[in-house]
Design a protein around this nucleic acid. Sequence first.
DNA 1: ATGCAAGTTAAAGTGAACTTTAAGTCAAGC
DNA 2: GCTTGACTTAAAGTTCACTTTAACTTGCAT
Lengths: 172, 172
Amino acid sequence: MVEGAGSRPRERAAMISISDLARRAGVRASALRFYETEGLIASARSAGGRRYYPKAELRRVAFIRAAQAVGLSLDDIRNALAALPGKRTPTKEDWEKLSRSWRPLLDARIAEMTRLRDTLTNCIGCGCLSLKACALYNPDDAAAKRGPGARYLLGDSAGDLMKKRPKARHAL
Amino acid sequence: MVEGAGSRPRERAAMISISDLARRAGVRASALRFYETEGLIASARSAGGRRYYPKAELRRVAFIRAAQAVGLSLDDIRNALAALPGKRTPTKEDWEKLSRSWRPLLDARIAEMTRLRDTLTNCIGCGCLSLKACALYNPDDAAAKRGPGARYLLGDSAGDLMKKRPKARHAL
DNA sequence: ATGCAAGTTAAAGTGAACTTTAAGTCAAGC
DNA sequence: GCTTGACTTAAAGTTCACTTTAACTTGCAT
């Protein structure tokens, strides 16, 4: 049964194999299987158990990759994807809306990077390293880390903006 | 023997304990021990084997943390630190020089983020997802990943600028 | 002199995001 | 019908940057 949860069988031609999706999305097939176990994407199956995807799934993978580039964790991304319509294939507008929601995050990251760039050279060389006032040493600044494990540039301001803050200890 | 590799014993008062350094640098003591095993920092030892650091080591830890915030791996950082004078305590100028070397990296990251921000909204919603021309899908763009494991925002443009490129597969 | 927090080590554990491996199944071409 | 390559699964392995644990030692304050 090469069809989704929908009612009408999709055209075979409209469905692509895992290696096709992998190639077109620029990820490994193993990553797609992993995304599936993680609930980020879904697949239809052939009679023999092989995965087939509607071409629209490419857009979903694109979103995932782009969101990662912005610094979101797969967990964040799963949450974001939950905002998409469940039953119908998401439209261009659905995706645009989702993508637009990143703008504040991107703006914040850019601003943070800029601040870092502008204060860094002075701060490292200066004598203020033990002072709480130093721009590099203020733990209440946006830059924090995401707990042990993978570390994102400028910490979890993603968590801030996407609502859902883990422990977040000391910051740079 | 509370002294470094140097000849004259340092003042006991000038040396700080691991917990002091940890507290002042905003990292855990376990992280400092880890940095030491990784060759990023060094410690003098008391007769009983306890670590003591000259206060100047705080600056070194500061550099490490700041470099991480810019997206460098500990490996990159170790390389960067190798440029410091080996025998004398690095001066303000040494640190400033090192910090200034990040500017191109930071500038590049900021530019990349800005590009992403400006093209993203269009790209996700558009029909170009399978085209090589799409700004999001160009694998030759700066954004790439650092092999399996920790993933940095915008990939290893750090590697680019710091010279030393791992495998770097497909990009977003 | 003794109590106990703070230090030491090596080794194992953590978490994210995958990849690799092993052992087997499916399907298309000849 | 058979080979071959693409696919399947579950489970284990990998990388990074640490943290945690366990068992033990140090050194300051009383």
